[in-house]
Nucleic acid binder design. Structure first.
Length: 190
DNA sequence: AAAAGACGCAACCGCCTACGT
DNA sequence: TACGTAGGCGGTTGCGTCTTT
């Protein structure tokens, strides 16, 4: 019988010591070898989102927040891709932070968190409700100007109708990575 | 001080893809 | 080629904590 729910300190210690010793991977066999009554998926999730030493937790900085917004504008809800550009942050944390903080923040600024475009006037909320914690001079959702979105910015062959998904599925990680860097830097300079 | 409601986050679920056989 | 399995992902849920009434 698999255990569910919050992890205990003892379970964390078992998983941490096992993965530290044996390395990541082969999650299906991890519970048995580590002496846990969890499924492999649960072990992987706990390691990825909580136990890894490289993880920063909480206190997302203004710079990180700005980067998340920029990346979400480029990539949409591709949380793992966004997390991959922010050292120490997990996709789950960024997803949660977006859903609980950033989407509301954008709405309070009159910006649709899905499209990053201005909300229609009828649905625009009362700006008096804006959180006092909002940073003064906080930039509105940034505009790429010449690159309205990544689909327009990437080299696309119009003949075969390829788009972002095609680009992502065919580009080597380092190529996509450097491409994202260039887009982000371009925004920074503007 | 207590109850109700809102919020935040860890964890689960189901789907998709990659890979091995 | 078809199938089974594991890993990875995004959406969603549930519960503990905090805030408000």
């Amino acid at each position: 019988m698999m255990k569910k729910g919050p992890w205990t300190r003892e379970e964390d210690e078992l998983l941490f010591s096992y993965v530290s010793r044996e390395g990541e991977g082969r999650w299906g066999s991890v519970p048995k070898k580590a002496g846990l009554l969890r499924c492999g998926k649960s072990c992987r999730l706990r390691w990825m989102n909580y136990l890894r030493l490289s993880i920063k937790r909480g206190d997302i900085s203004a710079d990180e927040e700005d980067l998340i917004i920029r990346l979400h504008r480029l990539l949409g809800n591709r949380w793992s891709l966004i997390a991959g550009r922010i050292p120490g942050r997990t996709d789950n944390e960024i997803k949660n932070y977006w859903n609980t903080h950033l989407s509301k923040k954008l709405i309070s600024q009159g910006i649709d968190p899905k499209t990053h475009k201005p909300l229609s006037s009828s649905s625009k909320p009362d700006h008096n409700l804006t959180h006092s914690s909002s940073t003064p001079n906080q930039p509105e959702a940034t505009s790429l100007n010449s690159h309205e979105n990544i689909s327009n910015a990437i080299p696309i062959n119009p003949d075969n109708g390829s788009g972002l998904d095609d680009f992502l599925s065919h580009s080597p990680d380092d190529l996509f990575s450097s491409f994202l860097d260039s887009l982000i830097n371009e925004e920074m300079c503007e």
